[in-house]
């Protein structure tokens, strides 16, 4: 894996803290922009293949960026998927180790606005330590 141990350990710790502090959060995942998983934390009831999640996250990141540049002429910041049972957010991260995508999903008790704040703060926290 391309990212170093320090980033992985830091992210793992930060994700763990978020999962403990906010019951609504189902899953947090950090992956490279080309689809390799770095680290993830999720509730026990969430079942997924980490490889597939990382690939899907990078795809959504890439497609969101392409669409944003076509329509808005600017790269995207945050992309959302809204469903009946909750929401998923994707944020692009530029770190010294390369380009990454941070994914966070939460159940319906956290609205999209709150999820946006949550993932943006976490992204900033990671960026400040690894820019």
């Amino acid at each position: 894996m391309p990212a170093n141990t320090e980033l992985r350990d830091y992210a793992d710790s930060a994700f763990g803290q978020h999962m403990e502090n906010y019951a609504a959060i189902d899953l947090i995942c950090l992956a490279t922009s080309d689809g390799f998983p770095i680290v993830s934390r999720s509730l026990d009831r969430i079942h997924f293949e980490l490889d597939t999640l990382a690939a899907a996250s990078s795809t959504l990141h890439s497609v969101s960026n392409a669409v944003s540049k076509q329509i808005l002429l600017k790269p995207f910041r945050v992309a959302f998927i809204e469903s009946e049972k909750g929401n998923v957010a994707f944020v692009s991260l530029q770190l010294q180790q390369g380009e990454f995508v941070l994914t966070m999903s939460a159940d319906e008790s956290m609205n999209i606005g709150q999820l946006r704040v949550m993932i943006s703060r976490l992204a900033e926290q990671i960026s400040n330590n690894f820019h």
């Binding site: 391309p2 922009s33 080309d34 390799f36 990078s58 890439s62 392409a66 076509q70 380009e99």
Partner: peptide, 10 residues
């Protein structure tokens, strides 16, 4: 073309 590329990390 609508391209969806990412820089390869490996």
């Amino acid at each position: 073309p609508f391209a969806t590329e990412a820089r390869s990390s490996v």
